[in-house]
Design a protein around this nucleic acid. Sequence first.
DNA 1: ATTCCACAGGAAACAGTGGTCC
DNA 2: GGACCACTGTTTCCTGTGGAAT
Length: 400
Amino acid sequence: MSDPVDQILDEAASGKSIIKNRDILHFTYIPDTIQHRDDEQKQVTQSLLPILHQARPSNLLVYGKPGTGKTLVVKKVISKIQERVEKSKFPIKLVYTNSKEETTIYGLLVSFGRQLGLQETELPTSGLAISEVFKRLLNMISKKSLNAVFVVDEIDHLAQLISKNHKDILYQLTRANNRLEGGSLTLIGISNDLTFKEKLDPRVISSLGEEEIVFPTYNVEQLKKILHERVQQAFEPDVVEDPALNLCAAMAGGEHGDARRAIDLIRVAGEIAERGKSSVVTSVHVREATQKIEENKEQASLKSYPLHEKLVILAVIKATGASTGEIYQAYKALCKAVGRDALTQRRTTQMLGEIELSGIISGRLVHQGIHGRTKKYKLTISTEMVKKTFEQDLSLKDVV
DNA sequence: ATTCCACAGGAAACAGTGGTCC
DNA sequence: GGACCACTGTTTCCTGTGGAAT
């Protein structure tokens, strides 16, 4: 018997794989052309054209569901503009940040600052007032007469942060040009949520949405073409069966035309087929892939919860279909069992709400007349999955 | 028609941490 | 070293809710 590790390594080295280029099976892999997005590419380019003529373009808002290629298009246009203006020595600075990757407004501004070239000593990662951070950013732009273009991906998330902290940072960003002595600042917002503007200050809406571009979702036919192209480049010839490809497109098409999801599906299906030593990818593999992606998502999300949230989830299992009050009693008992102080009922309600948002549990508001109003929760995923995941947590081992 | 229950969930306050600035 | 700041997680306080019971 050969060594099991060697066996796998030998097989991989011999090039037996049905996948010949894995990189292509990632959404962010940018092909030369972004398919079915010609119109949008033209629109974005038109909007940013003034930069070429050394003028400040209008602030721009880009909308579209996840996986519609918004960010890819914006990044492509920007990098092309950058190529051209580099030659003309026009001092333009493009800065990209995803607000979801920053948990605070402070972090977001610091990320902008770093990309503008502000060092740790000039802009520390904490300790300053937000207004001070903002001032330092503007000083930098003024001093170097930069024409800065800030791209804020998932700007709806930023809008949410702002509504929590009551800071009008977006307003200040959109009106920064009035405060600048040299240089300029342009804001490009990218959003998944078409309705996020409703949460904003009307003054911000008017200056931020000077121009708007909407990315329509892909239809199943378009998804098929996108998949087909990637499959041709990524897999060996005739490996992916047509029904498998069609199923991927149909499934992703059913979920708001998400190309990211479609490409993910075919990648995971390919990996499953390969591990099963199959020479073709069939629709069975695609179905398995759907399930696997779903399970991975659930497990990752379960693992990421802090202890008290995990205890609340366990309490929902113990008191299944029960009201908040009963769940709270079960939770208190669990806390006692693991030797922790229980949090208040108010906090527990809040945690239940947060967990519900992630889709692991679902709640239903019930009016029971004189018995008051309550919310009844139940688990939406399998109990076994939760138990299996939580068993790995040492502090929970005894109560699972 | 009124009362009452068992909470939901918003708002504000607070404590603690980790930092800067002068 | 003290004033100040951002931020997170939590508690405290409070108002609102809709239908059964009275």
